[in-house]
Design a binder for these strands. Structure first.
Length: 885
DNA sequence: TTAGTCACG
DNA sequence: ACGTACGTGACTAAG
């Protein structure tokens, strides 16, 4: 087998690591106050690469300084860059140390960039028959790809890379790796600060390179081009293009003092590496090597525990005041999961058992139901539901590790206690994946010692993390969010899940058999049109029929082939009758699979109800989500799908379904947080907001008629504003030209200047602080706000402005839910809250309580928070969820 | 396991 | 010039 060479672009990976993990910068400092995040990220990358690639030779190349032969020939090369942050500069010497301890060579050469070192060695390696892997954060290096050199460019974070081979370059750009140089010469490079030819961007550059092969050949045949602005620019900028080509070219013959034979990969230098990790405070890397964080300190705090049996429950008397508790339910669905065991304790004594039946016995049941003994748990909702199945009402929960951790950083939303603990730098517990395995191999260990140790470690982690997490919540001003909203909401959600919603299986079955007949009809029609039978559900087979056999025009491509999505098919509908049939087939098939068979599968046979689970610690915005099944996406928009709702019925005869929803809550939140006077005024006047927006942005008089089309467009603009608008996106959606869409947006900002200011301010806030907040201080970190990639940065900017809006709306309904449940309890109403669908609450109630709900629910919902504009709530009632009026 | 599609707010 | 609206979950095909 060919020898393998690993070449790493040191500077670019360190930069990537630093900015990719920038939001965690405070988490990574060693005891001397040195920032270590880039060093850590670099090592993550290194380990990841070495997992998959086993080099015989390895080198990390660094830039030697700012001055290079390129700056000598072009003074502005890489000019205008922000200066490297001090927090990053200080880490560079340690990266060199890490490289050495990891057994790799490092090298830098005065007057040359790391690229040139890599280019030169990759060439030497190619000639010597090596297989080379180049790892970099810089796309420019893809010009080095060859039959024996693959270039891995970091894609997201530091370990997720995209591998460029000549074939992959060809596929992505349609040119050879070498031609990337010509492309860059023409288009320039903003980050390296050289201009290229005026008005030529990537698209034009690729076109020209495909046509002429190279910059030189282009100028040899420049006369072949038709007269155009582009041609004028090309002629004008010929010197620039030729100079840029030199700048863009990575050297393959830099005067290195080293060569391949000096680069033997030595493998990890264990002693050195351990010393280094200890100096850096890298506990997780040390743990992986089975080394204690500090010499002399114990590796893992030992656990001692008592196994509980029916005979020694009396020992629990020593627990009082505060107890951490953990009930192991190995399956995600805690409505149905078996119980594998439990553990509890108070920080000094730990108890454990496999037998969940013991929980029903007095000492344990009393402890769990006690309102004076406070409980700390991981996932309170799962525990409330699980214990409810055992006839136990868990009371007095103070601390929910999962919930607190989610509020601190919505990205740390793992359901694995061990992983969550790790996020908070706690290493005395292993992850479930480590102990139980994953996938099909996942199982509770037979060995008591292994299993009990793990359970006790988990419950101890809950106990130990309580104080530090409460401190962090406090620092973030998130204590009220935790105490007054999320924790009480957990109980409300548990109650809704336990109550469940009654679904009539027979109704679904009847619909199912009708749909089945219709599907068979449509199917044969499609086969007839296609002239053959095929699997309509397979996009691959379907696109073969549409775009190859029937030769319909390709509108859009996906990563893997032709797109057959709705918007594409709609454009093709009048070209072939089969398209309409496919659209209908898709619609019916979706209903059949997801909503008929899907729902039938999850009706509990014991009570004919569906018990969803609301995920409270998942979304990045603070919304809930619903799984097993998802009851937040039951069809409503199309009349045929809407019929599904006929199966959702009250659980008692003589009861009805009652529903209230917020009207335009997100736009009202927008009016509130932007403080925009015009938008607020429109809401205070109780106007039809889309109509009044139309009046403003289309400059219509106060009495002018607003036709449906105008209102529709204004509505799209309103949505667009909330989502972070682009003229292109708006144009697509409402079928106008991009210029028109642009004008609409400009008019909007002129009419609603407060909104424009909010958008700018919010993005600035995110850049400065690395996160954005809702009205209740719910946080979302946005590391990509500093991303180099236009795409990723733009996405972060859109989410920066959308999250406070969507998230504050989520805050509002959460508060309403807590107060609503309180009202139902206090008034001892029989009515039950069943569902939350983001801006809507669904109840079931005896008929005689409906008038009460009609008054009470809107009252509670619109007074949940006090905004600068009124909240509006609409209510409906009916015999099924379908019949609401 | 991933991608494509489509259901919802 | 870039590439295109925010947040979700379930199903099917195919690697």
């Amino acid at each position: 087998m060919a020898k393998q060479l690993l070449l790493i672009d040191g500077n670019s990976i360190v930069f990537r690591a630093f900015f990719a993990m920038h939001n965690q910068i405070d988490k990574f400092t060693n005891k001397d106050g040195l920032h270590t995040v880039a060093i850590y990220g670099f090592k993550l990358m290194l380990d990841h690469v070495l997992d998959n690639f086993h080099p015989d030779a390895a080198l990390v190349a660094f830039d030697a300084g700012k001055k290079t032969f390129r700056t000598k020939m072009y003074a502005d090369y890489k000019g205008g860059r922000n200066k490297t942050p001090e927090e990053l500069m200080e880490q560079l010497p340690y990266v060199h140390q890490l490289v050495r301890a990891s057994g790799l060579h490092s090298y830098e050469l005065k007057n040359y960039e790391a690229d040139d070192i890599i280019g030169t060695l990759a060439k030497e390696a190619d000639d010597a028959g090596y297989e080379t892997l180049v790892v970099t954060g810089d796309r420019d290096l893809t010009q080095l790809a060859s039959d024996h050199t693959t270039v891995a460019v970091t894609h997201k974070g530091v370990t997720d890379t995209e591998h460029y081979t000549p074939a992959h370059v060809e596929e992505k750009l349609g040119i050879t790796p070498k031609q990337i140089i010509d492309m860059k010469a023409l288009m320039g490079d903003t980050s390296d600060n050289y201009p290229g030819v005026t008005k030529v961007g990537e698209k034009t550059a690729i076109k020209l390179v495909k046509q002429f092969g190279s910059v030189e050949n282009l100028y040899d045949h420049i006369d072949d081009l038709k007269k155009s602005k582009m041609k004028e620019h090309l002629i004008e900028d010929e010197d620039v293009a030729r100079q840029c080509k030199t700048l863009a070219t990575i050297l393959r013959d830099a005067p290195l003092e080293i060569s391949l034979k000096d680069l033997k990969y030595e493998g990890e230098q264990t002693e050195e590496l351990i010393d280094f990790y200890q100096q850096m405070g890298f506990k997780s890397f040390l743990a992986k090597m089975n080394v204690a964080p500090e010499e002399g300190e114990d590796q893992v705090k030992p656990v001692t525990y008592t196994e509980l049996t029916a005979d020694n429950l009396g020992e629990l008397d020593q627990l009082s005041g505060e107890v951490s508790f953990y009930l192991e339910m190995p399956e995600a669905n805690y409505h149905l999961s078996p119980f594998a065991g439990f553990a509890l304790g108070d920080g000094s004594h730990w108890f454990v058992s496999r037998d969940a039946e013991l929980l029903k016995q007095a000492p344990l049941k009393k402890l769990l139901e006690s309102t004076t003994i406070h409980k700390n748990v991981f996932n309170a909702k799962a525990h409330i539901v699980g214990l409810h199945r055992l006839g136990i009402e868990l009371a007095a929960v103070d601390f929910d590790l999962l919930l607190a951790s989610y509020l601190l950083n919505t990205n740390d939303n793992s359901n694995d206690l061990g992983q969550v603990a790790l996020e908070h730098d706690y290493h005395d517990v292993r992850t479930d994946e480590e102990v139980y395995g994953k996938g099909a191999k996942r199982a509770i260990p037979d060995d008591d010692e292994t299993f009990f140790t793990h359970l006790v470690q988990k419950v101890r982690a809950i106990n130990d993390l309580k104080a530090p997490l409460f401190t962090k919540l406090n620092q973030n001003k998130q204590t009220p969010l935790y105490t007054d909203i999320e924790l009480p909401l957990t109980r409300v959600l548990a109650k809704m899940e336990i109550t469940g919603v009654h679904v009539d299986a027979q109704t679904l079955k009847n619909m199912g058999s009708k749909l089945k007949e219709r599907l068979a009809d449509i199917e044969s029609g499609i086969y007839e049109e296609a002239g053959e039978e095929f699997n309509i559900n397979s996009t691959k087979q379907l696109s073969h029929i549409l775009f190859e056999k029937l030769k319909l025009p390709v509108i859009k491509k996906t990563k893997t082939g032709y797109s057959t999505a709705v918007d594409v098919l709609e454009k093709l509908a009048d070209r072939a009758p089969i398209v309409e049939q496919i659209l209908e087939y898709r619609q019916i098939a979706k209903l059949q699979s997801t909503y008929i068979t899907g729902l039938l599968k999850v009706i509990h046979s014991s009570d004919q109800k569906i018990h969803t689970r609301y995920l409270q610690t998942l979304t990045q915005t603070g919304r809930l989500s619903s799984v097993d099944p998802n009851l937040q996406n039951i069809p409503v928009r199309l009349p045929e799908g809407r019929l599904i709702r006929q199966a959702f019925v009250p659980s008692h005869t003589g009861w009805q379904i009652f529903s209230s929803d917020y009207s335009q809550v997100e736009l009202r939140v927008l009016a509130h947080i932007t403080g925009d006077k015009n938008l607020q005024e429109d809401f205070r006047n109780g106007e039809d907001i889309h109509a009044s927006t139309a009046r403003r942005i289309f400059h219509l008089g106060p009495d002018a008629e607003i036709d449906r089309n105008m209102r529709r467009r204004a509505k799209a603009v309103n949505f667009g504003i909330v989502y972070g608008i682009s003229d292109y996106g708006l144009a697509q959606r409402i079928h106008v030209t991009r210029a028109q869409a642009h004008e609409f947006i400009q008019n909007y900002f002129k009419e609603f200047p407060g909104v424009k200011k909010y958008i700018d301010d919010t993005i600035a806030f995110a850049r400065e602080h690395g996160y954005v907040e809702t009205i209740t201080h719910r946080r979302r970190y946005l590391p990509d706000i500093h991303a180099k990639s236009f795409n990723r940065r733009s996405f972060a900017e859109r989410t920066a402005m959308n999250t406070p809006i969507q998230g504050s709306a989520a805050d509002i309904i959460k508060i309403a839910m807590i107060r609503m449940q309180r009202e139902l309890d206090q008034r001892q109403l029989k009515a039950k809250m069943l569902l939350q669908i983001h801006d809507e609450l669904v109840f079931e109630a005896p008929q005689d309580e409906i008038p009460v709900l009609k008054k009470l629910v809107p009252q509670v919902m619109d007074s949940a928070v006090k905004l600068d504009v009124p909240l509006k709530v609409d209510s409906k009632v009916g015999d099924t969820w379908y019949d609401l009026k």
